[in-house]
Design a protein around this nucleic acid. Structure first.
Lengths: 356, 356
DNA sequence: AGTATGAAAGCAATCGATTGCTTTACTAAA
DNA sequence: TTTAGTAAAGCAATCGATTGCTTTCATACT
């Protein structure tokens, strides 16, 4: 900001060391053509004067911005703000800046964000795709969006909600396992008939949670009753309505596993309002582990997705790709292990010890 | 990113228009020394080729980074992620980038963030200070932190939690009014003895909420009973404990106003666990309007602080300062009006219509 | 001795926009 | 007709780091 020649440049260092700026630059970048001795002299002086790379000059010359872009639906959703936190940490540690874009759940805005980031010539992009809920195949369109990124050769890493067809690195939580864990937990707590409040099962993450649910049932010798599997919106309201339907069955469930905490909360609301005890009559477990689950009554059991770590990992992978020479087709997928967070809503025992 | 000469430069435009790059640059910047006619020709071609300023070159030449820094305690708190959303919007609209720093509630990290941003030569900083809760006067130390910013001449705008001693622009919500509104609301709902669960009252925002509380009581002819005013941590636990104390009084309150939703939630938990009805026996109102207040049982009334708008306004003021020539001492303070969000916890009527 | 070999470092151009200082080309005043 | 005056635009340097191409030595080899 200030006009003062406050910052040391390679030229300053070069002058003092009786070297040329180019040599200083090479020394700082550990270029093999500079002698070890010179490198040490340069490094020492650089430290002494607290030399800092001028990012603008670097970018102008190299075209690399030392900046990564992040695209998420909304930054004020806990999951994403937490992931961004992780991304920021890693980026900052490598002296990279982060530009955050929100799609506000619109694929049109998603496209705009992508164009903006590519226009800014970011060095890479970390993204959780915005599914087009209107489309039959929600992935089709957004995949199309990200084709631009691939075309531009910009390194790309997906996290959370990913595009399967792209040969890029991905970080996801093991949704199948999450579905399994939650279901098995309910079984272990004594549930006999477990309903699943699902999201749209053509969305990969919800489909996989459904699979995990089925695997747990099968593993424990429970039948899979399709009438206990409902899908739709992810809202609290949807949870309320689905639960109403479920409890109206002749043979209603004694446990509800929801793929989202909001769904679970809606379910609990219906149950409480209609005289059912949670967990006394019906056990409930959600998914996402929203920070307020602890505050609910009863507190809501859930599956933690480690969003913070997800962000960190995604950023690490991206920066690795950005800085490493492009060894082709290194796309790898990191799968994080979800964690069951047991609270009152799914545990009679807990509930007795420390009531709601 | 890509090496292709994908971006149009002033030189490209100049060549095509038979002009000099400097003239093109001046035309684009609406410099008075360029004829209107030429400006129009340039602008037209720029539009045609979708000319975009090369930020790196601009920054290198001018020292201005077209970047603003944001410092907040944590970006995954809804209030802040929401404010950041607002800041991003405004910044993006002016082609500014945003660098986000978190202090994680540590004044030491706050200092680091400040140094990092100043090192990055950001054009300005938007900050919500991180009070040092250990210190007797929590403002003293953080104010010290921000002195660096002022020294460096970097434009600075505070929001939410501000440093009173600085002659810089500020955006805050009218906490006094918020305190007043919440209290008056409880009075109107029939409360006779209203307790206040406060934060540390040497923190300005809590002090002002306290003042508003007192003003409302006085205005309505209620006595101010100091024994009904408790302060301390802002945790749910603190809310629980304080409420326990309150209800143990011979003359317990029939309403609780908490300066934070977490405090209120703790209070409600105590009440429910001990056989009190909310709102039947005790009315409760919080402050912050956390997004999950709607999900609680009963849903929690609260004071909305318009964090999104706060971010927008702060960013607008900052960019104004950044772009305007430094007319000295223009520091202004914008005070936003809080909003009462009535829900079940404070309203018998609501509660009856649509039970908890 | 004479040249090949190569390590170490210097030179100068480059990236794109900006800006102080000219130059150009008229018009108005003397 | 000459000169001052001015509007319009060009020239060239600059910001700091990078990098292809040389240059400079010095050691090795025939």
């Amino acid at each position: 900001m200030s006009k003062k020649k406050t910052n040391v440049t390679v030229h300053d260092l070069a002058r003092e060391l009786n070297l040329n700026a180019s040599s200083v630059s090479r020394a700082l970048n550990d270029h093999p053509r500079i002698s070890v001795e010179t490198k040490q002299r340069v490094l020492k002086l650089a430290k002494k004067y607290n030399y800092k790379l001028n990012k603008a000059a670097y970018t102008l010359r190299t075209g690399k911005g030392k900046t990564i872009g992040v695209i998420v639906p909304r930054i004020n959703r806990f999951f994403f703000s937490n992931a961004i936190h992780g991304i920021e940490e890693i980026a900052a540690s490598q002296d990279y800046n982060v530009i955050i874009c929100q799609t506000l759940d619109s694929t049109t805005k998603e496209m705009k964000s992508i164009k903006a980031l590519l226009g800014d010539k970011v060095d890479g992009i970390v993204a959780s795709i915005t599914p087009d809920v209107e489309a039959k195949n929600p992935y089709a369109k957004c995949c199309a969006n990200y084709k631009e990124v691939v075309k531009s050769q910009t390194p790309l890493v997906f996290f959370n909600m990913v595009c399967e067809d792209f040969k890029v690195s991905k970080v996801v939580v093991d949704d199948e396992l999450g579905g399994f864990m939650g279901t098995e937990h309910l079984i272990q707590e004594g549930a006999k008939r477990i309903a699943l409040l699902s999201g749209q099962t053509h969305l990969n993450i919800y489909y996989r949670r459904l699979e995990g649910y089925k695997r747990a049932l099968t593993r424990h010798g429970y039948p899979i009753d399709e009438s206990l599997i409902l899908d739709g919106d992810l809202t609290e309201h949807a949870g309320y309505e689905c639960t109403r339907k479920l409890m109206a069955m002749q043979n209603p469930p004694d446990a509800i596993f929801a793929v989202t905490d909001y769904l679970a909360i809606g379910g609990i609301r219906f149950l409480k309002r209609n005289g059912y005890e949670v967990p006394g009559d019906v056990l409930v477990c959600g998914f996402m582990n929203e920070p307020f689950n602890d505050l609910l009554q009863p507190s809501l059991s859930s599956i933690e997705q480690h969003s913070h770590q997800m962000g960190q990992t995604a950023a690490e992978m991206l920066l690795d790709e950005v800085m490493r020479p492009k060894k082709n087709a290194t796309a790898q997928t990191v799968v994080l292990t979800p964690e069951l967070m047991t609270r009152h809503s799914s545990s009679l025992e807990k509930s007795v010890l420390t009531p709601g």
